[in-house]
Design a protein around this nucleic acid. Structure first.
Lengths: 128, 128
DNA sequence: ATGAACCTTCCTGTTACTGGAAGGTCAAGG
DNA sequence: CCTTGACCTTCCAGTAACAGGAAGGTTCAT
């Protein structure tokens, strides 16, 4: 498929997809006309990149994560180390998002424009 | 407190804190010597910024989230709209992180270097 | 009072894109 | 066959969100 379809299927702008090729994250085939040609596996990788980037992982971290998939038969020690580190990070992110969610929900349901002292958000914030 | 202590308490580099001041996210006092002077509430905001940035929210989104705290007595309709939108995003992020976590965990526990066809990761990836 | 460890502003560099120009390709309609 | 519009290509410039480092002022302990 062309880059346009890969873009709409992955959710990434075509510009970003070309950039990811520039920095060596994906290597699509080329047709005789010079157009990039993406397969289903490329789209999987692009969706994966889209997701992990939006979750606060840097491009270099995404490169590592992607390598876990592509280089599955590598010595397991390395793979496990990297994966385990990322798991810890992911758990932290989930915890922090859950906290943030709780705080925001209080704001929506309990803090409707009344004055400061009785706002539950302030209590949470002042816990530190 | 000086910027150094605000930095170590919030986890943000001093450079970043100055940058956040440049773009109007925080406005610390200044001492007679010209040094920035941060209070406990500033540190709360900085920690909040640190967390939400690392969770994939842009600086502009963080500005909105911060405004929810600072502008608590604003017309609730606006506040609730923004907060509700962010809640949806947060829920999506939590779902995606949980998925990513599950996939990685499989990689660590089930996919230890053996060949492709029987690797559970590949099945997940090919679901699409 | 001198050195280390802070702080200040300013200017440049990096990462991860984003927009736009200039031009080639393709499928449909007149 | 030709053109029109929607694709695609490369390349170059701009933006966002910082990071590094120079040049210099402040504070504090020895």
């Amino acid at each position: 498929m062309n880059i346009g379809e890969a873009s709409s299927r992955s959710g990434l702008p075509a510009k970003t997809i070309r950039y990811y090729e520039d920095i060596g994250l994906i290597r699509p085939d080329r047709g005789d006309n010079g157009y990039r040609d993406y397969g289903a596996d490329d789209v999987h990788k692009l969706r994966f990149l889209h997701r992990s980037r939006s979750l606060g992982f840097s491009v270099e971290e995404c490169r590592q994560l992607l390598a876990l998939y592509e280089d599955k038969s590598r010595a397991s020690a390395d793979v496990k180390d990297i994966a385990a580190t990322k798991l810890t990070e992911i758990d932290r992110k989930i915890r922090e998002l859950t906290e943030l969610r709780r705080t925001l929900e209080h704001l929506v349901h309990a803090c409707h424009g009344n004055e400061r002292p009785d706002c539950p958000i302030l209590e949470e914030l002042s816990e530190g």
